[in-house]
Amino acid sequence: MASKETINVETSIDKSVEKVWEFWTKPEHITKWNHASEDWLCPSAENDLKEDGKFVYRMEAKDGSFGFDFSGVYKEVKPKKKLVYEIEDGRMVTVIFSEEDNSTTIKQTFEPEDENSKEMQQEGWQSILNTFKKYAEDQN
């Protein structure tokens, strides 16, 4: 069972919160940024963006050696402000969106799992956030 400790990651994106929210929540965008490294991909994403709505993101190594579904249920949805969801293993994640001067900061707080080091988990989640930032800033 995961502890109630939390890990935080964050980034700032030079886009409005409207655009950041769209890129974060729409499946056609999620599949383009949701990976921690270039040797992984997200071939499919389903996102029922409402309280008690479910999401499923398929994660796969590009070489086909490994894959898994990352899924959960939304507990709170405040458009362009906040998402709270429970991952299928019972851990909680909170994502806060805040805008200032046409720049949006995303802060993610999540409960770590017990299998991998906290440092590795923080690096992995931060890497996905960095990939999101690059994707979002490259969009028109």
Score class of each variant (00 low, 15 high):
123 E>V: 14
24 W>M: 12
119 E>T: 09
137 E>T: 11
25 T>C: 09
91 R>L: 08
98 S>Q: 08
37 S>A: 14
12 S>M: 14
50 K>L: 01
1 M>P: 15
108 Q>N: 12
109 T>M: 04
5 E>R: 09
68 F>P: 05
12 S>F: 11
108 Q>S: 10
102 N>Q: 15
33 W>A: 07
72 G>H: 07
52 D>H: 12
111 E>F: 01
21 W>Q: 11
46 E>Y: 01
31 T>D: 05
124 G>W: 11
52 D>S: 13
121 Q>L: 09
113 E>S: 08
90 G>P: 07
123 E>R: 07
5 E>T: 09
68 F>S: 09
15 K>Y: 04
41 L>T: 10
81 K>L: 15
46 E>H: 05
127 S>G: 10
92 M>W: 05
131 T>S: 14
108 Q>D: 07
55 F>D: 03
77 V>N: 02
84 V>G: 00
94 T>I: 11
48 D>E: 13
48 D>Y: 02
140 N>L: 14
12 S>E: 15
111 E>N: 10
131 T>L: 00
120 M>Q: 13
112 P>E: 02
125 W>F: 15
9 V>C: 06
114 D>S: 13
55 F>G: 01
42 C>N: 08
49 L>F: 10
117 S>M: 02
8 N>E: 13
41 L>M: 14
41 L>C: 14
121 Q>M: 02
104 T>F: 07
54 K>Q: 02
77 V>S: 07
97 F>R: 08
38 E>A: 13
9 V>N: 05
74 Y>A: 12
136 A>S: 10
4 K>Q: 14
26 K>L: 14
92 M>D: 04
115 E>S: 08
61 A>I: 02
45 A>C: 08
36 A>K: 06
87 I>W: 03
35 H>F: 15
7 I>D: 05
54 K>M: 00
10 E>V: 04
123 E>S: 15
85 Y>L: 01
21 W>T: 10
35 H>G: 00
65 S>K: 11
133 K>S: 04
62 K>D: 00
101 D>S: 15
69 D>Y: 08
29 H>W: 05
69 D>S: 09
78 K>I: 12
65 S>P: 03
48 D>R: 07
97 F>E: 07
81 K>N: 15
6 T>I: 11
129 L>A: 14
92 M>N: 13
46 E>I: 08
91 R>A: 00
99 E>T: 03
102 N>K: 15
90 G>L: 04
59 M>P: 03
85 Y>K: 03
45 A>D: 06
102 N>M: 12
2 A>T: 07
136 A>I: 02
139 Q>G: 05
116 N>Y: 15
90 G>I: 06
55 F>M: 06
89 D>E: 08
125 W>N: 14
90 G>A: 03
43 P>L: 00
35 H>Q: 10
13 I>K: 11
80 K>R: 11
74 Y>S: 11
140 N>Q: 15
13 I>L: 00
1 M>R: 14
100 E>M: 09
48 D>I: 04
118 K>Q: 10
42 C>M: 01
87 I>V: 13
128 I>A: 09
6 T>G: 09
106 I>K: 07
39 D>Y: 05
81 K>P: 08
89 D>S: 10
50 K>H: 04
132 F>I: 08
128 I>W: 10
67 G>I: 00
76 E>C: 05
19 K>H: 15
45 A>Q: 00
